[in-house]
């Protein structure tokens, strides 16, 4: 299950130091993955992490979680990034099978392609654990994902609390959503609206993203603002185009009158949230997801019963708790804590 658009930049850090650290880490681990050699007969069991694109920070953080946990458990692990190409992903799958990997952790390019991967792996007898992006079908050991509904519910409560603080009782909320045909999109909308209902806040409209572009986000935000004079908040179900929404608020002269919350996080949110530019964000924990995926595969290889579906909590970060959650954010969200 994906966390944003088709090829979203999962994580972007506002701070340059963090960016530098991230790029160094990416180059370091990417080179390691590409250069992995076939295991020797008496070598450690080898795991392969088939990933859509390691250049995406979210996947990179997740790879780090995989790598850290696999290493801890004594596995040799290789990450094969498909660079978001299905053909390359299949080639990597064939390669992993051909090289007799003990197990595969896959964050596929999409849930459909995952089916073919699962099918090929099954035919070869290789167990597979899926992390984050799900599959449209096939057999797998376990599926590790974020609890989107609960995360959205939590971030909804954060927004309600912020509006309450400001004494806004009658304001409404506009939603700029990812496609609602996706399961995670439906879950996020459902959780958020449950929180709104509990707070007595009414919706002012929903726009579904198609191109995931800045302009699309800006336009949707402006439409919602202009169509609802009593609009008091915008909720962005993705994080990467948050600037379009902020610009629309500014351009409509609603700065300070309309709050902005997001799902997922960008590194600069560590600054924007305390500054009040954003009043909250629901943050997934890719590092933790990678670790859980390895744990599941390891348990399976050891013959233990594995929970077929694991939903990990989403951190609802607000100006009120960012200070407290910062260590967790750094480790599980940004993957900055190495094993």
């Amino acid at each position: 299950m994906e966390s944003g658009g088709p090829l979203p930049a999962k994580v972007s850090f506002a701070m340059n130091a963090w960016k530098a650290l991230f790029v160094i880490s990416l180059v370091l681990f990417g080179a390691t993955a590409v250069q992995a050699a076939p295991p020797a007969p008496d070598a450690k069991p080898r795991l392969v992490y088939l990933v859509s694109d390691l250049r995406i920070p979210f996947w990179n953080v997740m790879w780090r979680g995989v790598n850290a946990r696999a290493t801890e458990l004594g596995y040799e692990v290789t990450a094969l990034s498909a660079e978001n190409h299905a053909k390359q992903e299949l080639e990597h799958t064939a390669k992993a099978i051909r090289e007799r990997a003990a197990g595969i952790i896959v964050s596929p390019t999409n849930s459909s392609a995952c089916v073919t991967i699962l099918k090929l792996a099954k035919n070869a007898g290789v167990p597979v654990v899926i992390s984050d992006i799900g599959t449209d079908g096939g057999d797998y050991v376990s599926y590790v994902s974020s609890d989107n509904e609960d995360g959205a519910y939590q971030i909804g409560k954060v927004l309600a609390e912020q509006m309450k603080k400001r004494g806004w009782r009658d304001g409404r909320v506009g939603i700029i959503a990812i496609p609602q045909k996706r399961a995670n999109g439906k879950a996020r909308t459902a959780g958020f609206m449950r929180a709104m209902d509990e707070a007595g806040i009414k919706g002012a409209g929903l726009r579904q993203q198609v191109t995931f572009s800045y302009q699309e986000t800006y336009d949707f935000a402006k439409q919602l603002i202009e169509s609802a004079p009593d609009l008091r908040a915008l909720w962005l179900q993705g994080s990467d185009r948050y600037q379009g929404a902020l610009d629309a608020i500014r351009d409509t002269g609603k700065t300070g009158e309309i709050l902005l919350v997001t799902f997922d996080a960008e590194p600069e949110f560590l600054d924007l949230i305390p500054a009040g530019t954003l009043v909250g964000a629901g943050m997934q924990q890719p590092f933790l997801m990678g670790r859980k995926a390895v744990d599941a595969l390891d348990a399976h290889l050891r013959g233990e019963t594995v929970t077929r579906e694991q939903k990990l909590p989403v951190l609802a970060v607000s100006p009120d708790n960012i200070e407290k959650e910062l260590p967790t954010i750094k480790r599980n969200v940004l993957g900055l804590a190495t094993p």
């Binding site: 299905a86 053909k87 992903e89 299949l90 459909s112 392609a113 995952c114 089916v115 073919t116 099918k119 449209d136 079908g137």
Partner: peptide
């Protein structure tokens, strides 16, 4: 051509 085997299987 796009190696989306599952799609054509669907």
């Amino acid at each position: 051509e796009s190696f989306a085997a599952n799609e054509y299987e669907k």
